[in-house]
Amino acid sequence: MTYGLYLYGIFPAPGPKTLDLEGLDQQPVQTQVIDQFAILYSAAQQERYLASRRNLLGHEKVLEQAMHAGYRTLLPLQFGLTIETWETVSNQLLEPYHQSLEHLFEKLSGQREVSVKLFWDSAAELQTLMAEDAALRSQRDFFESLRSDRADGKSLRMDEIVRIGQAIEKAMSDRKQTIIQAFRETLAPLAAESVENDVLTEQMIYNAAYLIDWDAESEFSQHIEALDHQFEGRLKIRYNDFTAPYNFAHLNS
């Protein structure tokens, strides 16, 4: 039993013709051309696809394999999109957004999306901060001594406690922003566009995507390596040198 068609992405017509790809539920991937657009799809075997790791990776794999095969200009569709008829696609997407789709194809032609995620060890960074900032270390140590030993009759007012905490927090924020700014200033000039997304974990300090020329990835990765060397020992960098351009394929009505 099938549940209509599962859609992966849109290419300029004629789109992929000779691909031998396996989509979700081991279904063969096919191409449907409507007007100036070619849509990659497979038969849907489920009424609703759960956003499991396996399904998400399967969706992305189809798009990435098509792009690696030479069909580089792609508008990826959101995961889990199924339809019953092609008329739905024409009426709800291709016709009302025809001009926007053409503009996106122009923007994405010859481009690829890469992503950079930065992680640090906040405890280790705080320890380094204290080692480098004698004045701040002295305030912190004085506060800690009073917390552990009240016999000397000394006490800190609440505003002093808050002030010390705020000073440490600001110093940590400044260190974080120095790192982030170094990446921005180095990488942004190499990209046509960039998007900064929300950080996903407490240890993640930067999460960005860049739209770069397809053949400029080698130069881009060299700058990533140079930044890694610049902040050696302080960061873990997760760099994805190729993905479907989800961050740069937003339709405007």
Rank of each mutant, 00 (worst) to 15 (best):
Ser138Met: 14
Tyr49Leu: 08
Val33His: 10
Gln65Leu: 12
His223Asn: 12
Gly23Cys: 07
Val162Arg: 14
Ala216Met: 11
Gln139Glu: 15
Ser145Trp: 02
Arg112Asn: 00
Glu113Val: 01
Arg54Trp: 05
Ala191Arg: 06
Arg54Leu: 14
Pro28Thr: 11
His229Arg: 15
Leu190Thr: 02
Phe105Asn: 03
Gln92Lys: 14
Gln139Ala: 14
Lys117His: 04
Phe119Cys: 00
Asp174Ile: 06
Leu108Trp: 05
Met204Arg: 09
Met158Val: 13
Glu64Gln: 13
Lys107Asp: 10
Tyr6Cys: 10
Ile212Gln: 03
Asp198Val: 10
Tyr6Asn: 09
Ala216His: 08
His103Glu: 15
Asp121Glu: 11
Ile237Ala: 04
Phe11Lys: 03
Ala244Ile: 01
Ser100Asn: 13
Ala44Leu: 07
Glu169Gln: 14
Asn55Ile: 05
Glu87Asp: 14
Ala51His: 04
Phe142His: 15
Ile83Phe: 09
Gln166Cys: 00
Ala191Pro: 00
Ile212Glu: 01
Leu7Asn: 02
Val29Pro: 01
Arg48Ile: 11
Asp174Gln: 15
Arg137Trp: 05
Glu113Trp: 01
Tyr71Glu: 04
Ile180Glu: 04
Leu101Trp: 11
Ser109Val: 05
Thr178Trp: 09
Val116Ser: 01
Thr31Pro: 00
Leu24Gly: 05
Asp198Ala: 15
Ala192Met: 13
Glu193Cys: 03
Leu146Gln: 10
Met204Asn: 08
Ser218Val: 12
Arg54Glu: 14
Arg147Phe: 12
Leu156Glu: 08
Glu84Asn: 14
Leu251Cys: 00
Leu126Cys: 05
Tyr6Arg: 09
Ala171Thr: 05
Gln30Thr: 10
Ala182Thr: 09
Gly165Gln: 08
Leu211Trp: 01
Ser138Cys: 09
Gln65Met: 10
His103Leu: 15
Glu144Leu: 15
Leu63Pro: 02
Ala38Ser: 07
Gln45Tyr: 02
Ile34Asp: 04
Ala51Phe: 01
Leu19Met: 12
Phe37Thr: 00
Asp213Ala: 12
Gly58Phe: 02
Arg140Asp: 02
Ala182Val: 02
